[in-house]
Design a protein around this nucleic acid. Structure first.
Lengths: 176, 176
DNA sequence: CTCTGACATGTCGAGAGTGGAAGGTCAAGG
DNA sequence: CCTTGACCTTCCACTCTCGACATGTCAGAG
């Protein structure tokens, strides 16, 4: 049920069309809550039907500019304050770690090395993002920066862990 | 498509029934790849139909003991070696951070404090798990320990981040 | 002997997410 | 004038996940 709140949250900042929203999902929210076109447009329709959004203006090419309503804002606030986030995490990377035993030691070490490289690359990418984005003082910028800092810490931790884990596996006597 | 490989991976270690598998999902894999009964039994059926698993024995109460086949093992190995993990991550916690601007400063700080507490609690829980599990030398134990170490590092990082973020928000002049 | 609790498998429907196809408008450049 | 590319929305078919429900067996306690 988070997609609906992601849409509400983006529209709390400024009005936008489905097309605009897609760009926001692909840039700022890409690493946090990805969404496809079909999802976004579908959700806009439902939200408007439920009165949480309204069509503020219609532009050329059938463009519909959506704006959040009072009850939409209330719903967003209540989601933020009254409900606890769902934290079911699925990590395919970690799932694979459980089964590394079916591989040879060398193959397992390779897997962990690749994971360390990937984390390092992602870390650099986020650093690039941090440098390139021009951070304003609007809500999304201020708090988006906090989210980016999380990503930086996460990828750094992942790299350290993968290197440590590789060492752990390598240290076991080659008694496979 | 990871559920199928999770099942194959568990059965690579030892044979098991759907019921046994559920217990493994609820204990070892709970934090990495949760699954429900209906999913597990459904997947077992499909996997057996595809020849990646076979019913090794039938026990009382209709119990079916599944074992991985040669082609199942090949599929598992190829998944581990030839394919890169899907790393689409969704974090409702982080999504909320983006929208903290619609709340008052105090409410935002409360949110981040709760998040720090939650991470700390989860960290302790994992430490308890580490102490209570009796770690053998089997594959799942050896590599499961690496996964647990990841969880420990993750929750520690989350707590630090949340406390830092709370400080960041608090430091801004109360000009809301 | 009967009750209870662990063992054990299965079906169904609703909702979320994925990927792509289809259809149409407008502005600007060649 | 005509093509191209950006703009913009809608629909569909599919898989995955969740939670509840249905069905039944077996061992041990009382």
């Amino acid at each position: 049920m988070s997609l609906r709140h992601a849409v509400l949250g983006l529209l709390a900042d400024r009005t936008a069309s489905g097309y605009d929203l897609m760009k926001l999902f692909d840039s700022s929210l890409a690493n946090v809550w990805p969404a496809t076109q079909s999802q976004v447009y579908g959700e806009l329709g439902k939200l408007a039907g439920a009165g949480l959004l309204e069509v503020a203006a219609e532009g050329p090419r059938g463009r519909k500019e959506y704006a959040i309503t009072e009850s939409g804002l209330a719903e967003l606030r209540s989601w933020l304050i009254d409900t606890r986030p769902d934290r079911t995490r699925r990590s395919e990377t970690l799932l694979r770690v459980f089964f590394l035993g079916v591989l040879s030691r060398v193959e397992a070490i390779t897997y962990l090395s690749l994971e360390a490289d990937r984390a390092a690359a992602e870390h650099e990418e986020l650093e690039g993002l941090e440098a390139s984005v021009d951070w304003g003082d609007d809500q999304i910028s201020v708090y988006g920066r906090l989210a980016l800092a999380y990503g930086l810490r996460l990828t750094a931790m992942q790299q350290e862990w993968a290197e440590w884990a590789r060492g752990q596996v390598a240290a076991r006597l080659p008694a496979d």
